[in-house]
Nucleic acid binder design. Sequence first.
DNA 1: GTGATTGCAAATCTTTTGCACTAAA
DNA 2: TTTAGTGCAAAAGATTTGCAATCAC
Lengths: 134, 134
Amino acid sequence: MRPYSHLLVQLREAGLRPTRQRLALAKLLFEGDDRHVTAEALHAEAQSHNVRVSLATVYNTLHQFTDVGLLREIAVDSSRSYFDTNTSEHHHFYFEKSGRLEDIAGDQIEIGRLPAAPTGTKLKSVDVVLRLQE
Amino acid sequence: MRPYSHLLVQLREAGLRPTRQRLALAKLLFEGDDRHVTAEALHAEAQSHNVRVSLATVYNTLHQFTDVGLLREIAVDSSRSYFDTNTSEHHHFYFEKSGRLEDIAGDQIEIGRLPAAPTGTKLKSVDVVLRLQE
DNA sequence: GTGATTGCAAATCTTTTGCACTAAA
DNA sequence: TTTAGTGCAAAAGATTTGCAATCAC
């Protein structure tokens, strides 16, 4: 039995070499429930699982995964980047005090009407954030 | 005739001493059309108008104005903070390549249904960002 | 006067980069 | 081999902070 073969395939298909670091980070990110991570947090998690990865590689990997569509980057706080393992259409609660993000299923928010994208531009995404005070 | 008396009053009412720097920045921000600024951009604008203000004071002032409700902070890019002089309910187009923001009137986007705020939290705002590719 | 505000420079925090080393194909 | 990927340390960029000097009241 080959462990993590699906992750291996997933990386290969995305055109990324399945290196030890990428596989380990993919395992942390994609096994289990959907999650929201910062680079710093994922790096700490890797350390605590005895995965040796540099912070620079964590940053590189998060961006590469985002580029190939395995992750989605969420802008809710101008001081840190969050990455979401759920790439389907959905929205977010943002707990301002704790900095935590929580998914809102796409069908939980109905958007009735949208303005057209300005000429010469293409609508890339509709991001809805419900900011919460705790 | 006292110039900028309305700005002066506005600051006083907010509990902020109308210092030379705050008045000058308020003039740049609130006279004329609604606008979106970064600290860096406002600082540069002040310089070019021969207003001597330090960048640190621009940051302080933007945050103080935000705290008293004269500005609204917009999170669209994890690397810089934008401040919006339009504090009424509305949304934004974000031109990813150029980093420009454009207002969308509140009534241009209809949100039909929203999930309830989780127990123990209060909904502070509903932020909708339409990301555009140029 | 006295307490708030400012400016400067240093510090901090997140993220990126250059480059020699290592590993995957 | 050959080329992509990694780690490190340094650099970069945005923002904050400490503190003495200055200003508003």
